[in-house]
Amino acid sequence: MGKKTVLELMINGDTFEIACAPNMTLLEALRDKALLTGTKRGCDTGGCGACTVIMDGEAVLACLTLAVEAEGCDIRTIEGLALDGKLSPLQEAFVEHGAIQCGFCSPGFIMSATALLAEVPSPGREEIRRHLAGNLCRCTGYVKIIGAVESVAVKDRGGEK
């Protein structure tokens, strides 16, 4: 009952073997076992979005996901976005727009927005807002965050035409 097992988690393309009991959340597995601390813990109860990661293409809350349920999924964390040290366009936009102040919420926002743009390459402002409204930021008033996402979205739209 509740025994420890060894899980194989696919995180950012790498396989991690993690010994854990069923009551370990994906957030704990990422931060405490895989030492991928870019994913943040703001509340641990689903209220802030700081722990957002992408699982099989969906932006989900790692604090309310069991690690065992993540087995076999493609898990992407903030550490997996930059390629060879080069920021993703969205990360770049967050930096350039001043969308990052203390930065504690930023990984969660960037993961949420990454999932959005993968699904809807050119969302409107209202859609961006709705999509990001599960992520809390206490520093920025959200203005520059939305602006940053919009700038990447608009670029994509330009590219499509």
Binding site: I78, Q91, I100, G103, S106
Partner: peptide, 14 residues
């Protein structure tokens, strides 16, 4: 931009 914004954007800032 803040000099440490990129590190924060990559989840590397501790």
């Amino acid at each position: 931009p803040m000099y440490d914004a990129a590190a924060k954007a990559m989840g590397q800032a501790q």
